[in-house]
Amino acid sequence: GEDLPLPPGWSVDWTMRGRKYYIDHNTNTTHWSHPLESGPSSG
């Protein structure tokens, strides 16, 4: 998808195989999909 801006506290990194993933430092979790690309989340 597009390179959307990341929310505060997020960063992007790549695996050893070159796969892009996103790090949420607020909750110390990692995600394969961009936080703003996922569907609407409630709460």
Results as ranks from 00 to 15, higher is better:
H31K: 04
D24P: 01
L4N: 09
H34Y: 06
S41A: 13
E2D: 11
S42I: 12
T29C: 05
R19D: 10
P35M: 01
I23M: 05
L6F: 02
S11N: 05
S38E: 11
E2G: 10
G43K: 12
T27W: 03
V12C: 14
N28I: 02
R17I: 08
T15W: 05
G18M: 04
P8I: 07
P7S: 01
E37M: 14
D3P: 08
P5W: 10
S41H: 11
G9A: 01
Y21M: 06
M16L: 13
S11T: 13
Y21V: 07
G39P: 14
I23D: 00
D24Y: 02
P8F: 08
L4V: 10
S42R: 11
E37H: 10
R19Q: 13
W32H: 03
S41F: 08
T27H: 04
G9W: 06
H31L: 04
L4T: 10
H34Q: 03
T29W: 02
W32R: 04
G43E: 12
W10H: 00
L4G: 09
P5A: 11
N28S: 07
L4R: 10
W10F: 01
S42P: 11
G39E: 10
L6P: 15
D3L: 09
Y21W: 04
T29F: 03
P35T: 03
K20P: 09
I23N: 02
T15Y: 04
S11A: 08
G43A: 12
E2I: 11
W10R: 01
N28F: 05
N28K: 08
T29I: 06
K20S: 02
Y22F: 08
D13R: 15
Y22N: 01
M16I: 14
L36E: 06
T27A: 04
P7Y: 00
T15Q: 02
G18T: 02
H31V: 04
N28W: 06
G43S: 11
P40R: 09
R19P: 00
P35D: 04
W32I: 03
L6R: 07
G1N: 13
K20F: 04
I23H: 05
P5I: 07
R17D: 15
P5V: 08
H31T: 07
K20W: 04
G43N: 12
S42T: 13
D3I: 10
E2R: 10
N28V: 03
Y22R: 00
S38A: 13
E37I: 13
H31A: 04
S41L: 13
K20V: 09
G43I: 11
H25Q: 06
